[in-house]
Design a protein around this nucleic acid. Sequence first.
DNA 1: GCCAGAAGTTAGGAGAGACAAACTTTTGAG
DNA 2: CTCAAAAGTTTGTCTCTCCTAACTTCTGGC
Lengths: 234, 234
Amino acid sequence: MASRAHNAHPKRRTNEAAENYAKAIYELQAKGERAVGTKAVAERLGVTTGSASGMLKRLAEEGVVEYEPYRGARLTPEGERIALEMIRHHRLIELFLAEVLEMPWDRVHSEAEVLEHHISEELEELIAAKLGQPRRDPHGDPIPDRDLEVTTEDSVALSELEPGERGVFARVSDSDSSMLRYLAEREIQPGDGLVVSSREPFGGPVMVEIAGRIHPLGAQLAESIRVQRKSDDE
Amino acid sequence: MASRAHNAHPKRRTNEAAENYAKAIYELQAKGERAVGTKAVAERLGVTTGSASGMLKRLAEEGVVEYEPYRGARLTPEGERIALEMIRHHRLIELFLAEVLEMPWDRVHSEAEVLEHHISEELEELIAAKLGQPRRDPHGDPIPDRDLEVTTEDSVALSELEPGERGVFARVSDSDSSMLRYLAEREIQPGDGLVVSSREPFGGPVMVEIAGRIHPLGAQLAESIRVQRKSDDE
DNA sequence: GCCAGAAGTTAGGAGAGACAAACTTTTGAG
DNA sequence: CTCAAAAGTTTGTCTCTCCTAACTTCTGGC
């Protein structure tokens, strides 16, 4: 047997930065439609616009984005594949950490942010199997399936419900731990049914009844929480 | 709230290479005593001696190794801490993947090789807790405890046992998947008791009885398998 | 429709980590 | 003891990804 290096890292693809750019662009495209600007990408990734500009150019050469200088970028199908793969990893890992290892809800995000780039396809599959091919992560976000199809949302921001309207807490942005902690402390989680009791004007709180208790939720929180609207006969 | 970047990677320590060097040096020190040579380090990591030489110099500046040009390197206490931390991560992850996710024995190594650099201290602790603070990984290797103390081995290579001697299969090098697969197929695993029936000369096989069956194990395998010798009255 | 400020790009450079190739030191066979 | 091979080091380059700073293009308020 030829003595191959014991711990050699086969070919160490250096995709991590590209994966993060793809994910950032995907998420920006998801809200703001059309091409996303260099500034927005840079901000989301915490780099300077100079860095983002250079990287977008490189990603365009690699076929990950379509990019017109001064006009912004959008993902190619290949770029979208990369983004969805990372999102699937991220959310599977979040759910796995929360369910299997009982890691607190507000801490799974940052761990997943790192690990999503480093699990093999085989481990991804084992995790998905262990969890029973789940469709939502602990924040209520949908998990792309094996073929990277995402079940589309029909949620709206909680702040858009009128007093009296009912809904189901669908998900909340997973990137702000203090919000997550706040909700966890009050035992509010995805799947909970809710009724808007009243809404105060001028950035005042939205009063929401969840599981029999009334919570005053600040304007920012009400923007971040997504709910599925329920009509009265559901 | 100031809009901090959503997915910013806090300060992205670039320690991965240093961690791998520390681990490689630790493992080389463990067998070959004294200072380890540039060549040996380079080979184990699959880089050229030039690269290893440069890196050892840098690690010496950072206080990870003591290094005398042309004389080899050895870990400082700090370097040993880094190595043991990685080994603890590696073995906890191996055991976790095998036990909790039922990943085959021969595939956990390469997955752990990557992940060991990317799990947080918090996740390390959750995994250790889930597994009940284990002391051995699925290859039988000891796992450093929280304070990085290793329970020392008193094992010998299977090839050193004389015919008639008894022992317990303690561990096997985890880096050669084909050996691992071979053993797994025959349902031979750490903890199994064994008796050497006979040993053929000139690199011939060692005949070993394990769980009532006799297996002919090649010379290379008999070198890689470590056993705890049992005296007749145990 | 002008032009300041916002958004974007380019140029130059840093530092990590690797490689190849030239060079130096150590070692061991005879 | 000698000297060639083995082991180790140095130098010059490369790639990747980021930064800062200077420069260019776009946009909207007047």
